[in-house]
Design a protein around this nucleic acid. Structure first.
Lengths: 203, 203
DNA sequence: CCATTTATATGAGTGCGCTCATTTAATCAT
DNA sequence: ATGATTAAATGAGCGCACTCATATAAATGG
């Protein structure tokens, strides 16, 4: 069976769309790959011709939402470093708002800091794309290319904010806004101080 | 069928011991609950009379290791706040060293910041126990009872260190030592500054 | 002692994500 | 047109964590 490239991309998009609907309606765990396939009008196994895993589906969903949000924000100018980072992150979270409820469950395994960088996990590109954008913002504000450990620290802090956002019960997630504010403040304070030299402690 | 309380605790301990062996030998994913049950000399279903889930088994394993390490360290005195936190955390990590390889896989779902605090997950007691110990250390150094958001920030940072440790390839995890040093430095810097009042930003 | 109650052990069963041998259909060579 | 080739679709099947009706044996009461 052969199928035109158009049909393929159409099917792929259809999977993502129905998956989004189902995830929003039924949650992450209750939505099975079988039900996604059925709703997309394909066989159960066919889903895995398009995505490596259930997680890869939601990772694609996230990536698409973030890509849109990212483009708009990066054009802005004339803000302080903290303002710019804040705007960028908040724009991303806003873009993900409709997925918020099930992301708390889904993202756990996708964005976990415990995933090895080396393996080709579904969320790896989300992480690198985000970090690249942050690096670009830092460079724009004359912060010299941050050390790997700095970005690692950033990602850790970001995950904390993300986790709080995903489970934030305050009406418009204003608790998260406050946390993000504090977190960025802390990160920026840390910026000049991180890793000037490899000075190990206690022997 | 009834069994004495002794038999029950013996079985429970046996499960933990054989599970530890298998996890170390075969890793987290390759060790099945069936294989643990078989090695412990019980039926597959019986395992779940003793533990809610596969994750609960490893959570118990971690808790036991941490309990031993925690007791020894908390007696110490005369160190700076940073020193004391460093010693405490490093003692914990040392106690977990034998489990390090499979913890990178296992802990992902257990310690994830994305788990809701409210639900009764396997790793919840690990988190609260650790945070209580840290709070005790802070109090000992005249830091007034830290705000919830401060401890949240601490846990986020701690998870970053833990994640790095779990996948640290340097011979004696000295990379982690350096990261821990920097992380604690950052946390302590942040201490007086976190949440003086509920000042929300941007409306 | 036997009957009843009760706490535990049991393993077949369930639904899941995912795989893979096979089928199907579009394309290409003649 | 027709057969050969190829890429994608298929769904039965696998191994997993976990459940639950049932079996079993210890404790208890007469």
């Amino acid at each position: 069976m052969r199928v035109t490239a158009e049909t393929k991309t159409a099917t792929r998009e259809r999977i993502i769309q129905v998956a989004a609907k189902l995830f929003i309606k039924d949650g992450w765990e209750s939505t099975t790959t079988r039900s996604i396939a059925a709703a997309a009008g394909i066989a159960a196994g066919t889903l895995f011709n398009y995505f490596d895993s259930k997680e890869a589906v939601v990772a694609e969903l996230i990536s698409e939402a973030l890509a849109e949000a990212g483009h708009e924000v990066e054009k802005r100018t004339g803000e302080s470093l903290e303002e710019e980072l804040y705007t960028f992150i908040w724009a991303e979270l806003s873009a993900l708002r409709k997925y918020r409820k099930f992301l708390a469950q889904a993202a756990e395994s996708i964005l976990s800091p415990l995933r090895r960088h080396s393996d080709e996990s579904a969320g790896e590109s989300i992480r690198t794309t985000h970090l690249e954008a942050v690096e670009r913002i830092l460079l724009k504000h004359r912060i010299e290319r941050p050390a790997a450990v700095t970005m690692q620290l950033y990602w850790t802090l970001y995950l904390g904010v993300f986790a709080h956002w995903a489970t934030d019960h305050s009406p418009k997630q204003e608790d998260t806004m406050a946390l993000l504010d504090q977190t960025l403040n802390l990160f920026i304070t840390a910026l000049p101080r991180t890793l000037p030299s490899k000075r190990s402690r206690k022997s």
